[in-house]
């Protein structure tokens, strides 16, 4: 059996709200295998987004560890974190978070600039990804000229630019209509079929229902971890 691509061990996060401690995550542990397409669901405040931030090195846990590709990323120093984010993680956000002054192509290109990829290779990869996302004709358009679905596809292309070990998507369909939602979920599903590991945080049961594994969270803990059969 292959080693898991992501391992979470006894992860806890406690915030102080004034003098009152808030336990956002309590002793969470699980593994994610390569190519898995899983969703984390749960009500607001259940700790889903906090959990995603810990894996994405956007925040540090109070206790516990996260391993990506065998590297304990929770021990990364501030200077190591950008490299790990570049090499191991791709983010897709609810609000797309594209840079409004840059075209679709440049938004995808930007992720590779920080990885010091040469200009020619950056362009080649960005065109390849945007073509894969069905945006070949739209790559020179700015975000304001693109529909919500198109923007989210640009964001997915950007997340994949540096060949990450895992794509972390935080409510990726939260801002789009149902038709676009279905198209985005299909797209992510197709990527996972090709071996890309994808972890989605969502409220939408229609989205989670189409993933291969559903982790349900409640009050900072894993309530259930279900493999969806036959998808």
């Amino acid at each position: 059996m292959n080693d898991p691509i992501v391992s979470v061990r006894n992860l806890s996060k406690t915030y102080m709200q004034g003098k009152i401690p808030v336990h956002a995550l309590r002793d969470v542990s699980f593994d994610v295998d390569k190519g898995e397409f899983l969703s984390i669901v749960g009500p607001s405040g259940s700790g889903k987004s906090t959990f995603l931030s810990m894996i994405g090195l956007l925040d540090k846990p109070t206790t516990g560890s996260v391993f990506i590709d065998g590297i304990e990323v929770t021990k990364a120093t501030d200077s190591d974190a950008p490299r790990i984010r570049r090499e191991k993680i791709g983010f897709v956000f609810q609000h797309f978070n594209l840079i409004p002054t840059l075209s679709a192509l440049e938004n995808v290109d930007l992720a590779m600039r920080f990885a010091r990829v040469s200009k020619a290779k950056r362009r080649e990869r960005a065109v390849e990804l945007l073509t894969q996302m069905g945006l070949f004709d739209r790559m020179n358009h700015k975000p304001s000229e693109l529909s919500g679905g198109e923007q989210q596809r640009v964001a997915i292309a950007r997340a994949m630019a540096n060949h990450p070990a895992i794509i972390l998507a935080d409510e990726p369909t939260g801002e789009v209509d149902t038709k676009t939602r279905d198209m985005i979920v299909e797209l992510l599903h197709g990527l996972s079929e090709n071996g890309q590991t994808i972890l989605i945080v969502t409220h939408d049961t229609a989205v989670s229902a189409r993933t291969k594994r559903i982790i349900r969270m409640l009050d900072g803990m894993i309530e259930s971890d279900t493999k969806v059969e036959g998808y």
Binding site: G56, F114, R158
Partner: peptide, 10 residues
Amino acid sequence: GLMKALGAQT
């Protein structure tokens, strides 16, 4: 913030 999430260094 986005640039940092994409791996931009300080």
